[in-house]
Amino acid sequence: MKKLINDPADVVSEALLGIAAAHPDLGVDHQNKVVYRADAPVRGKVGLISGGGSGHEPLHGGFVGPGMLDAACAGEVFTSPVPDQVVAATRLADGGAGVLHIVKNYTGDVMNFEMAAELVTAETGVEVVSVVVDDDVAVQDSLYTAGRRGVGTTVLLEKITGAAADEGRDLAAVADVARRVDAAGRSMGMALTSCTVPAAGQPTFDLPEGEMEIGIGIHGEPGRKRVPVAPAKDIAEMLVEPILSDLDFTGGEGVLAFVNGMGGTPLLELYLMYNEVAKLLAKAGVTVVRSLVGPYITSLEMAGCSVTLLKLDDELVRLWDAPVSTPGLRWGR
């Protein structure tokens, strides 16, 4: 294992020290491992928090700031945060209008956020609504599984819902926007290499030279199938086809197409992939009106990418375009 670390046990806490040093407009509660807007809570605004295991940066701490999240808590690498952390983030974000919890659909995350919501409501009376993101089409039958995993749509949902909260909407209305984004987003990912959790010191799974995993999760969970490495245009098809067959993306106001890097793939290749994805979408009669390309929800140093499509309407386009000012996404201010 070659990594830019001191001690594997200190990776998360030392990265948070770096975030605090690099971004004076963010505060960090080092004990609870919470990144928050230095001006939080914003009086009268619905608070938005998220969190999860570390190793997916910039998600979630890098999306804290005006127009997006108010606070985010960081678990250990690939391990959900415990309720105390979520409670601390909720308290920091509570500006008197309630707090929305944005939770990726993993068993541990869902349970820890659920317990935290019960605890913080009992302690402080703050109203909490949770929205669970589950957009990964690689997981097929939710009757016999923990359900679809929360992946790329999470980034888009945090941005769009953050804009809705900025407009001064109430908690129910903000949660409604979040649920609409989740329902309209679908993702599919793939890996060229494994990743190595610092505390484990070994690659999470074996992926021989010349093979790739299609339908990978963001923690190295198994995908749909393992196949020989193929040209980018064929990989794009393997990712786009299952998304298009899961939801009709034609019509409406078009889509937001998001090609995400898993952490170890350069932008050069991500833009090459975007070109292949765009060609496939044009052929399928899907109109792309917004795009995002880059590593935004990563899996440590895993090489690979995911494709997310989000079906848009006028309102979602407007909320996407609204100003945002975070380490990870920044425009319009």
Binding site: G75, T79, S80, V82, P83, G108, M111
Partner: peptide, 15 residues
């Protein structure tokens, strides 16, 4: 247990 275990087993054993 809820405060220290994390994952799914923390909330489950804790509860």
């Amino acid at each position: 247990l809820v405060s220290t275990v994390g994952g799914a087993s923390g909330p489950l054993y804790g509860t």
